[in-house]
Design a binder for these strands. Structure first.
Length: 350
DNA sequence: AACGCGGGGTG
DNA sequence: CACCCAGCGTT
């Protein structure tokens, strides 16, 4: 429909390129070892894939090493308290992933004897594993011949086919075109295509002279590949404003509490604050004290910009309920998202 | 099908 | 600044 009688993707050329130029990554089995029969550990592949959802390789590396050091197998991760997983995940974002990660580990141990399912369909039934992640694990670990389609591939394929509409409107056509190209070395092919997107066919640059599928690329033939993928119309980012209250007791400990079970930053740790709204509310201090305005923290979420006024005071802890007092030196061990680490820093802590 | 959901790297 | 990243679950 949207694809003009495309040239098939040259999988042998892609694999040959991968054999020489694969990125070395902590969770990856290099192609030479894979050829000798070394199989990737599904636990490590799964963990890396969940961390890599909407997250860059550079950001994931340290978290991956930390997690695999603390919890080398799915059994240790399943036995860990959810709170410990959230603490370690803090800073990586999209915290539903951490809750689903733990739930998935528990399910694999409880329902599958600690062995991950070996098909994309079986994997997709687990928490936090969707179309992309199930395909990626099945291909990389078990060479299931399934199309592995992520954001990198959206871009590579949109260029290869000079796709005239936003990717969302042609997703299944792209999937079918990719599926038709998947070779027996399905795992290496999937990783090769993603490496291609990350290192050659990058968002702002396209090093077409190095690309193994340049001969069939419609965008290169037409001129400038970087005009693809066509962007959908973008929504404006609204501003929300609010207050954050950093309370200290006479010992210098800071008052923390847990956010609600659902919504933004669910179940993570915070300092008390106001609602966030388009107009800045009047301050409403949660306890008596000599409140001082410490400054403003600006934090960009995907769908809005947040401006928080940061206040601090030494208070008498009357009427406070549900939270706890933390020593400033122990804040690293709290499940604090980056937003609230900025707030605490603005108030002079950590 | 559209939306909510973090944070950091990059140009 | 804007853009985008090895997406998923909910509605």
């Amino acid at each position: 429909m949207h694809l003009p009688s495309p040239a098939p993707i040259d999988a042998p050329a892609v694999l040959d390129w991968y054999d020489h130029h694969a990125r070395s990554l902590p969770w990856r089995v290099p192609p030479a070892e894979r050829a000798r029969g070394v199989a990737p550990d599904p636990y490590r592949v799964w963990l890396s894939e969940v961390m890599l959802q909407q997250t860059t390789v550079a950001a994931v590396k340290t978290y991956f090493l930390r997690f695999t050091s603390l919890w080398p197998t799915v059994f240790e991760l399943a036995a860990a308290p959810l709170e410990a997983v959230l603490v370690e995940w803090a800073g990586l974002g999209y915290y539903a992933r951490a809750r689903n990660l733990h739930a998935c580990a528990v399910a694999v141990v409880r329902d599958h004897g600690g062995v991950f399912p070996t098909t994309s369909a079986g994997l997709q039934a687990l928490p936090g594993i969707g179309a992309y992640t199930s395909a990626a694990i099945a291909a990389i670990c078990f060479d299931e011949r399934v199309a592995v389609l992520d954001g990198n591939l959206d871009r590579v394929l949109a260029r290869y086919f000079a796709l005239a509409v936003p990717v969302r409107e042609a997703k299944e056509e792209l999937r079918a075109a990719l599926q038709a190209a998947v070779p027996a070395r399905a795992g290496d092919f999937a990783q090769a295509m993603m490496d291609l997107g990350a290192t050659i066919c990058a968002p702002r640059t396209a090093l077409c002279m190095l690309c193994p599928i340049q001969p069939g690329c419609a965008a290169t033939a037409a001129g400038d590949p970087t005009i693809y993928p066509v962007k959908p119309v973008k929504a404006e980012r609204p501003v929300r404003k609010g207050h954050a209250y950093v309370m200290l007791d006479s010992a210098g400990d800071v008052y923390l509490q847990t956010r609600p079970d659902k919504g933004l930053l669910a179940q993570m740790t915070e300092v008390p604050g106001s609602d966030w709204s388009a107009a800045l509310p009047e301050p409403s201090y949660p306890a008596q004290g000599a409140w001082r305005h410490r400054g403003q923290v600006v934090h960009i979420f995907t769908h809005f910009r947040l401006e928080l006024e940061v206040w601090s005071a030494e208070v008498t802890p009357d009427g406070l309920d549900g939270g706890w007092w933390a020593e400033p030196g122990a804040l690293a061990g709290e499940a604090l998202p980056t937003l609230f680490r900025k707030v605490l820093a603005e108030a002079g802590l950590q």
